[in-house]
Each structure stands twice: as C-alpha cells, then as structure tokens.
C-alpha cells in the first residue's frame, strides 16, 4: 500500500498511535510504546463512538494480565497497523511477559510523525474528541487495571472503563451433530 492510499480510518489510527507513543531521538532518551491490548481498547472505543467508520470488532482470545479472556478486537485495526508497519510508519516490538506469553507493543516512527503532521485537521479533531474526558473535556491517558483498561483524565483525574471485555450475545439455535471419529484402540 502507498501512503497516498491511506484510508481515513488508518490516518486516525496513526494519529492515535502517535498520541500514545514517542520514538527516541538520541541514545540517552527513553522511548514510549503502547501495548497491544490498550491500543485495541482505544480502537474499540473509537469504533463504538463512530471515530473509525469502517472498523468493527469481534471477540478474540487475548492474554490480559496473565489471564486468558475474550476481548472485542478490531481485525481491521490490526490489519491497518500491519499495513502501516510495511509502510514504515509504525514499528512493532515483540516482548515476552512474565507469563511467557508474547505481546506486541507499537510505536510511531519519525516518518510516521511527519506523515501525521500532514493529515487533515478533521482527523486530528476526531481523535481529540474521542480521547476527551467525559467530565471536563481534558486529555486522557490509558491505564491497564486488573478488570479492564481505563481512560484517566490527566486534568481532573476522572476515570472511564473501556468495555473491551464485554462480549455481545448473539441468539442462535443449534442441534447436536455426531460425526465419525477414529476411536482409540485397546
């Protein structure tokens, strides 16, 4: 994919990653990366608020704080992150947790930062609006708490749970289906 072909959702996703990550410019500086589940939680919020027009979410098994759970993850979001990695706008770091599960973390690249600067103001505004604190309109940060990720307002301290683990119910009817299975022998 070419940079000129970036969709509106991808642009907003890159702005979002830019908001929560920072590359180092010298060896002494520390970098900031955003982990996959908090990023997925933010995308989930964006989908629910209509910030990402063409994304949807589906239940996916994830490891959250050492426990396997279903989370509403956007495959389109994952796919766009992969495309932007190919374009050199985003870097991904794979790291092992203390539970020996591999998790991903993402960071915008310097090229990605330049690209973000060129995006139309409406996309920046959409992300700012998505991240605005419900109570005071201030800027929020994301914090992974035991039950779920939370948005914490940097100004008033108000917190808001991101319902990434609340899976919708779909009604269905089924019947048991016995199929042929090779059986173990004596």
């Amino acid at each position: 994919m070419d940079i000129t072909e970036i969709s509106d959702d991808s642009k907003r996703l890159l702005i979002l990653i830019d908001h929560f990550s920072e590359p180092a410019h010298t060896r002494e500086e520390r970098e900031i990366w955003i982990k996959k589940i908090p990023l997925a939680a933010l995308i989930n919020r964006g989908v629910r608020k209509g910030t990402f027009k063409d994304y949807d979410t589906a239940p996916t098994l994830v490891d959250y704080k050492g426990t396997t759970r279903f989370a509403n993850i956007s495959k389109e979001g994952e796919d766009d992150v992969a495309d932007m990695r190919e374009m050199g706008l985003v870097e991904r770091l794979k790291l092992a947790t203390s539970h020996h599960i591999y998790v991903s973390a993402y960071r915008i690249t310097p090229a990605g930062k330049d690209t973000v600067d060129d995006f139309e103001k409406k996309h920046h505004a959409a992300i700012s609006n998505m991240l605005a604190c419900k109570a005071c309109g201030g800027e929020v940060d994301i914090e992974a708490r035991d039950d779920a990720p939370y948005l914490i307002c940097k100004e008033c301290g108000a917190d808001e749970k991101v319902d990434i683990f609340d899976i919708d119910e779909v009604p269905y009817v089924s019947r048991p289906n016995f199929t042929e299975i090779w059986l173990p022998l004596d």
Binding site: V170, P171, Y172, V173, S174, R175, P176, N177, F178, T179, I181, L183, P184
Partner: peptide, 24 residues
C-alpha cells in the same frame, strides 16, 4: 444449546453442533 460431545482416553474432547438459526 445441546452439544454432541466425544471424549476418549487419548484426551481428545470434541464438541459438535449444527447451527440452525442465528438471530432469526
């Protein structure tokens, strides 16, 4: 839901069902 279940001594557990209706 009622599920056809197979369990054997090798540890293979299989749940099988035919979906007849989803959301109407």
């Amino acid at each position: 839901e009622e599920i056809a279940t197979h369990v054997d001594k090798a540890g293979f557990v299989n749940y099988n069902l035919t979906i007849e209706e989803v959301d109407g």
